[in-house]
């Protein structure tokens, strides 16, 4: 009798399909939780979406478009050009070095508020020295592979 009851919990997993077993459970739990969230807060969802839209379009709230999207564009460009350039200088880390100098300089200039001559020199030196130091120590001394 007992063994019959226990056999209710028998589960066999076909090895060929075992990659789907756990993800399926997790996906279902996720969907149920999402449904619960939407049900319990549906009244707040649509206004929140509208609010986000307005903020992104710059009609409401404090949102620094230049710096936010600038960061995204610069970072994407940095990563993209780094991978392109690393085919030009393979296995040397030069691509990382060159692109990091450019990226750090541009991002610093994007972020700084009141650019003075003194600040510019600091930023420029930082953009030149920091990546060079990182590249030298990591790629040359520790022989870490860099793009």
């Amino acid at each position: 009798m007992e063994s019959h009851w226990l056999s209710l919990f028998d589960v066999t997993i076909n090895f060929d399909q075992s990659h789907l077993f756990f993800p399926r459970i997790v996906t279902w739990v996720l969907v149920i939780l999402l449904a619960l969230i939407l049900l319990s807060r549906y009244r707040r969802v649509i206004p929140a979406l509208k609010h986000t839209g307005r903020v992104l379009a710059g009609r409401e709230g404090e949102f620094d478009h230049k710096r936010f999207f600038g960061t995204l564009v610069l970072t994407t460009g940095y990563f993209y050009l780094m991978s392109v350039l690393s085919d030009v200088f393979p296995n040397t880390g030069y691509s990382f070095l060159i692109m990091s100098v450019v990226f750090i300089l541009l991002l610093s200039l994007l972020y700084v508020d009141h650019l003075t001559r003194r600040l510019f020199v600091i930023i420029l030196l930082n953009a030149l020295i920091a990546p060079t130091l990182a590249w030298y120590v990591l790629a040359q001394l520790f022989r870490i592979t860099l793009p």
């Binding site: 970072t75 940095y78 990563f79 780094m82 991978s83 690393s86 990382f96 990091s100 990226f103 750090i104 991002l107 610093s108 972020y111 700084v112 508020d113 600091i122 930023i123 930082n126 953009a127 920091a130 990546p131 990182a134 990591l138 870490i144 592979t145 860099l146 793009p147």
Partner: peptide
């Protein structure tokens, strides 16, 4: 100041991400 610090953090994150699996560009993405 953050205009100095943040670009450096991003750069070091790139190094870390790229180096963690010994040089895979997708990790940077």
């Amino acid at each position: 100041p953050k205009f100095i610090l943040y670009p450096l953090i991003i750069m070091m994150c790139v190094v870390g991400a790229y180096a963690i699996n010994y040089g895979i560009m997708f990790d940077v993405w």
